[in-house]
Design a protein around this nucleic acid. Structure first.
Lengths: 227, 227
DNA sequence: GCATGTGAAGCAGTTCACAGCG
DNA sequence: CGCTGTGAACTGCTTCACATGC
């Protein structure tokens, strides 16, 4: 079911959908038939009101007095996330992190498939990782175009990130997940989310040194890149 | 310089500090003496007002009419982030991702050092990764206590994450960076940040399917886990 | 009676805009 | 005259609380 009447969905809500999805999948596997917003909230580490508001943005999927049907809700969220079709993804930078991500179960299970892996290093070209062959970076733009890839992942060292980003946008990539510790500049039509391992660690370290800044016990939420 | 008069620092501000730090480091290496908030903002992909407000929360580090002295500001941020001392970290789960992170340059450069790597698999025990030896998970709590480790990283598969989390909290770990796709429950005194690779990809995929929900071209910001 | 869906209230972070200082 | 530091306005997400429906 599409978003209700062109309603703009808040980013934090979108970031919670994958969590709801995963938890619902677990519930479905455990043959649970219905969940209340409170139960779902508990399993996701969020507040019940937030769950209800989030879901209500997409439609009225629950039954007052009963809760939500697990299988139906699961299906609706799958549709929202576009999990009904496989999305092609390219990844540049086949160092340790690139290898790790390319083999990640979240890739296939998440509805993505690797349209291409790329690196500058000729020694890495030809290697098979996660079922895909590593190609030379010079082929990136061409493959993106040929396979109509709109999602790119950057796992290169920081100094290479901007160049690779440019190649991707050239190839028609519209959204980039950047693991390199570098700020990317892109045309406005291209979205970037940034995941920064050491920055995350620094945030935790900061809180240890400044306990007065630790937010109240409002349960864990999620880190989000940006676009 | 400590946070001004016990002022509570907003989480988004804390998450931006490591970025400011990295950019300032680059400027310092390029022998740049001063930066204005606008320049720094440009390089960090944020808004100039945000930079000024962020920095003002820690102290008055700038000079009206001139800007900020790069070396001085850099030092202040280093102090805020606690980069003056090395922080011990433990990591559990030495699959591909664990290997990748353990070798990450962000580890050492970020002011962290590996106090212990752990896995259940006896075949992995004894292996040297990133200069540290992999130990059996049963030693985790003991090592945490002995080395007074307060930061933990979880890179196990989802089903093992909660158990490992419990072992860490038992060992006295007070903050956890969780890469496993699972919601962790911890005592309130223990903070958790969650980094979820496939969830990030899903957010980008969602926006592609729902362009009307894409936030305005407000430049890239950052993903944040939670505590 | 119990749980959803939602207007309204509350709160937090961002952005504005300008006084003040170098 | 330029740029910082900051109160004030604004925007947007979260939380509350309750009418509605099963």
């Amino acid at each position: 079911m599409p978003v209700r009447f062109g309603r703009r969905i808040p980013e934090p809500t979108i970031a919670r959908l994958p969590i709801y999805h995963r938890v619902l999948l677990d519930l479905a596997r455990a043959s649970v038939v219905t969940v209340s917003s409170a139960e779902l909230a508990g399993a996701c580490g969020v507040n019940a009101a937030k769950v209800r508001k989030d879901l209500s943005l997409f439609g009225s999927y629950g039954t007052p007095g009963t809760g939500y049907r697990v299988d139906y809700l699961l299906r609706q969220i799958q549709l929202e996330l576009g999990l009904d079709r496989q999305r092609p993804v390219v990844m540049a930078g086949m160092g340790y992190l690139g290898h790790a991500l390319a083999r990640s179960p979240g890739f296939v299970a998440g509805g993505f498939h690797i349209a291409g892996l790329f690196d500058v290093d000729p020694d890495k070209v030809g290697e098979i990782v996660g079922g895909a062959m590593v190609r030379h970076i010079s082929e990136l733009a061409q493959i993106c175009q040929a396979e109509k890839v709109s999602l790119g992942i950057i796992t290169t060292p920081a100094p290479a990130a901007q160049d690779v980003c440019d190649l991707m946008t050239e190839g028609g990539v519209r959204a980039i997940l950047n693991f390199a510790p570098a700020v990317l500049s892109t045309p406005p039509a291209v979205q970037v989310r940034h995941v920064d391992f050491s920055a995350e660690l620094h945030v935790l370290a900061f809180y240890q040194a400044h306990p007065e800044s630790v937010p109240g016990p409002v349960h864990q939420e999620f880190a989000a890149g940006t676009g």
